[in-house]
Computed example of a mutant assay.
Amino acid sequence: MTAVLITGCGSGIGLETALAFARRGDRVHACVRNPATAEELLRRARAEDLTLDVPQLDVTDDTSVTAAVTAVQDRNGPVDVLVNNAGVDRTGPVETMPLDQARTLMETNYWGALRMSRAVLPGMRARGSGVIVNVSSLAGRTFAVPHGGFYAASKAALGALSEALYAEVQPFGIRVVCLEPGSFASAIQRKSAACTAGQPSGTGPYDADHAWLSRFLTRVAEGAADCAEAAEAIVAAVDDPDTPLHTAVGKDAEAALRFLAGVPYEQWLPSFLDQAQSLAGPRPVPPPAGH
């Protein structure tokens, strides 16, 4: 029986991934930052007569990570599979986005995955096997969109970390996979659109542009794929030792990577803006200089 530890299981991809592994009979530790968010996961597990453990774990807190991983390993032995899924999204202009929000992105999306990996690696090395799946994003593999620079940076950093870790732990029999999903109907999509929509409008140099992006993100989220598809990709990556380190997930992600091969940013940006305007209307004209 495989011991699987997954972060960010309160909704979306994490929730579906926990259920997918539990259906196989694996020993699943589906971690959530806030226990109150586990209600839907537990309800669906009961409906399918699935068994899983739901530890409280905050990937941004060293003490929380150490305590949760230690408790899991004391109870069930070393973790066989770690899925670093916990993530947040915030949008905002490079010049004016509050730095605490930018730091939250890095703290969760990058440092959180690093904390978790460090916590489970000693046990994996001692056993000579293990799989770490870092759930990144297409945003970390392609070009950054307006107001999406900080999120893209956090995911690009996770991709670079995955590459170094892949090379370092391979001699110990440990695999690393960095999955890069496109648009999936997860809570991170809805929360990102909600946070963007909640920004003040019409008072700052970027506010109208930011509100325009909010409309675009909302429309994209409406057509996003089912998170169960991403969960299936995660399970498949764990099972298949030939899964490439960087693996796009979703038809839109695969198509985007094919389209962008060899395309410079300056050529890509107009096509992105055309697509965004087709969904969100004309991009606002910046206010006059000095305003």
Rank of each mutant, 00 (worst) to 15 (best):
M1H: 15
M1T: 15
A18Q: 03
L19V: 07
F21I: 07
R23Q: 10
R23Y: 07
A30S: 15
V32R: 03
L42G: 00
R43G: 13
R43E: 11
E48F: 11
V54A: 08
Q56A: 13
L57V: 02
D58E: 15
D58F: 13
T60S: 05
T63Q: 13
T70L: 08
R75L: 13
N85E: 08
R90V: 01
P98V: 01
Q101R: 14
L105Q: 04
L105T: 07
N109E: 10
G112Q: 04
G123F: 03
V133K: 06
V133H: 09
L138Q: 02
A139I: 03
G140D: 02
R141Q: 03
R141V: 05
F143E: 14
A160E: 07
A164I: 04
A167P: 01
G173P: 05
Q189F: 11
G202I: 06
T203N: 01
D207E: 12
D209M: 01
H210Q: 13
H210N: 10
G223W: 12
G223H: 15
A228R: 13
V235T: 12
A237E: 09
D242N: 15
H246A: 11
A253I: 01
A253Q: 00
L260W: 15
P264W: 13
L269R: 15
Q275G: 15
A276V: 12
L279K: 04
P284Q: 08
